[in-house]
């Protein structure tokens, strides 16, 4: 359970996130034909309210791309892109931002990033993690992040967030990539690495 995650377990999750987001960054780079810089990922186990704060300013308007994750480790993938970043991504893909086609192109970016990240995670842990259909919405960061976290946290109060930041070199575009595993699935990711919780 994420309530009892040790530093060692968080380190292991960070390493999983590092490798998986590296794979995702490569896919994005191939899709856009641009270099993509990747920040060192974070693995955070935080109370719900703090987890929202960790994602950014709750009053900021962002575009969120969300994918449900099903399989052995259910949860959600959430990408957050500030408005200028969303406009940049759309123009790199040759579509008009803020339109239905623009949103669908952003959904496709979510698809590519989510699928390659989850694939990498799957092959490292032997667990199945399957991406759902991407949904795109532009709203307050707090409303987007809290709504997704409310479902993944359930009745505990600790949210596990694996996040990485992807920057497209030379463009004003930072994509915040988050994997939010449901409370009960985390141990399944840790067990294959030998740092699982033997109790559960």
């Amino acid at each position: 359970m994420p309530d009892h995650l040790t530093e060692l377990q968080l380190d292991a999750l960070r390493e999983l996130a590092n490798i998986s987001s590296g794979t995702a960054a490569t896919s994005l780079s191939q899709m856009l034909g641009r270099d993509v810089d990747l920040s060192v990922p974070r693995a955070l186990a935080l109370p719900l309210a703090d987890a929202v704060e960790a994602a950014g300013d709750p009053a900021e308007t962002v575009t969120g791309i969300g994918l449900e994750v099903t399989g052995d480790v259910p949860g959600a993938v959430l990408l957050l892109v500030p408005p200028e970043g969303a406009a940049t991504l759309c123009s790199l893909l040759g579509v008009e931002p803020g339109t239905e086609v623009g949103d669908s192109a952003l959904g496709e970016i979510g698809n590519i990033l989510g699928a390659s990240y989850l694939n990498a995670l799957s092959s490292m842990t032997g667990m199945s993690l399957l991406p759902g259909t991407p949904q795109v919405m532009t709203d307050l960061l707090g409303a987007i992040v809290a709504s997704v976290l409310a479902q993944s946290v359930g009745h505990g109060d600790i949210a596990l967030v694996l996040d990485s930041e992807l920057d497209i070199t030379g463009e004003p575009c930072a994509i915040s990539f988050m994997l939010l595993p449901d409370a009960d699935g985390v141990n399944d990711l840790l067990a294959p690495l030998g740092v699982g919780d033997p109790a559960s």
Partner: peptide, 14 residues
Amino acid sequence: GARMFSVGASLDVG
């Protein structure tokens, strides 16, 4: 109580 993403349990939590 809005219906945001139907990610996760996909029920209308709002």
